[in-house]
């Protein structure tokens, strides 16, 4: 067990070091969701969005939940990228030829992605706070938001790693990534509530786990516990099923790639 932690600790430290050496790209990944979605998109649609439809005091407060979950989505889907590069340049081979537990590399990646995502979510909630969005459920609600984000993020990161282990080239990886990300956002309740969507879109959106996560986070921010709890309960169930499926697929892809 001590060996296991030693491996995971050292591997996680490597991810942290890599990130700290890529300050420029770190800044951009951090700032992008806030700048683009929350500040620009949120303010741009402030008057175009109908308060009757969004059922929120203003569009930014409606959008905040969506941006939080979008951040989880993007970080999760990109979570396997570093492993993809490791696979391509042979570093993964070097790691896996050492006498380590087969799961250490993957676990270190989960720990790293979850931690970075949580920090980013906190920053986004902080920025939203500055725009007057005060979570109705307080700090406990924020903790619940982080938990939902992590539950969703685990499955997404597993998908991303499964793809990293399966694709033939990194070109394929990034095409699939680009193809997945925006439709996942548009076919969810991130930007518009389901009730305001064209029928076929709202049907599709109901099959999107992202919708369930957002529908749980949104009342935590906007209304309060009594309204949020049923949604949170449903979201946790949906996320656990989602995670189980993704982890199963991820484990299969990993085993196939590692001989």
């Amino acid at each position: 067990m001590a060996h296991y932690w030693q491996e995971i600790g050292a591997l996680t430290l490597r991810w942290v070091r890599r990130l700290s050496r890529e300050k420029f790209s770190m800044l951009f990944t951090l700032v992008q969701p806030m700048l683009f979605w929350l500040i620009f998109f949120g303010n741009l649609f402030q008057r175009a969005a109908d308060v009757q439809v969004t059922q929120a005091p203003n569009y930014i407060s409606f959008l905040a939940a969506g941006v939080v979950v979008m951040t989880v989505l993007n970080n999760g889907l990109a979570g396997g990228v570093d492993l993809l590069f490791d696979k391509e340049n042979g570093f993964l081979e070097r790691l896996m030829s050492a006498p380590i537990h087969r799961s250490s590399v993957i676990l270190s990646r989960f720990i790293f992605v979850m931690t970075i995502t949580s920090l980013q979510v906190l920053v986004i909630l902080g920025i939203a706070f500055l725009f007057g969005v005060h979570p109705a459920t307080g700090l406990a609600g924020v903790a619940m938001i982080l938990l939902i984000g992590m539950l969703f993020g685990v499955g997404l990161t597993a998908i991303s790693m499964a793809m990293a282990f399966s694709v033939k080239s990194h070109g394929d990886f990034f095409s699939v990534l680009g193809f997945l990300s925006l439709p996942m956002i548009f076919l969810s309740s991130a930007l518009v509530p389901l009730t305001a969507m064209p029928g076929w879109m709202s049907v599709l959106a109901q099959f999107n786990p992202m919708t369930w996560a957002i529908d749980a986070v949104r009342p935590l921010i906007l209304t309060g516990w009594s309204d949020a709890l049923p949604h949170v309960g449903m979201a946790v169930v949906v996320m656990l099923i989602f995670d189980a499926l993704c982890l199963y697929g991820g484990a299969k892809a990993f085993r196939r790639a590692m001989g």
Binding site: E7, R18, R21, N89, L95, A98
Partner: peptide
């Protein structure tokens, strides 16, 4: 082969990482 190096890590950090992986 030569490319299996993490360009962001220093030489010492490579060796420290492997030190931990060999316990």
């Amino acid at each position: 082969q030569e490319r299996a190096i993490d360009r962001f890590l220093t030489g010492r950090e490579h060796l420290e990482l492997l030190g931990a992986l060999y316990h």
